[in-house]
Amino acid sequence: MDENKSYLYDFIKGLWKENPVLVQLLGMCPTLAVTNAVENAIAMSVAVVFVLTASAIIISLIRKLIPAQVRIASYIVVIATFVTMADRYLAAFYPAQSKALGPFIPLIVVNCIILGRMEAFASKNGVFRSILDALGMSFGFAIALLLMSSFREILGNGTWLNMRVLGSWWDNWMVMILPPGAFLTLGTIVGVSRFIQTKLKKA
């Protein structure tokens, strides 16, 4: 694998092959909790893109300074800083989203995707590659969230991003925007993506 290809791979892998939600089943808590509307999923995704990328930059920069014994503690402090910033920012400028997402923005701190990427990638690689990895992973997260929330909002509310897509004939499947709907959707989407991946592998 030459240098360029591997840079590309750093980014690409998070989107599909090592998708944090669909393949690694990480970050289930926000995935299940905030996907009842596309709007919330987008806000969540943006927050995660910001936190993950910013943390990756900082951590990969200071990775050689941090002693191994305190690395997790340091990561958490860094991540928590960015999460708190994101939370305050939303509260200040997007109060509606902030309200809808409730405690799930602060809970990004314990989202295992972020700590996982710090430990598995940013702490071992340079800034550029860490950014690529963080972007790939957070976009992968965003893709999964978008998929799930689209599915749930359309079936459960007849709308997509608050725009009416299904006519008045449509009866909302209430269950889809309730917690059980989150599990049903996740199960279905993970199942289908596994199915496609095994098919691709065979081909």
Binding site: I66, P67, Q69, V70, A73, S74, V77, V78
Partner: peptide, 8 residues
């Protein structure tokens, strides 16, 4: 160790 953590 303590120094780095405090600094962060």
């Amino acid at each position: 160790m303590i120094f780095v953590l405090t600094l962060v």
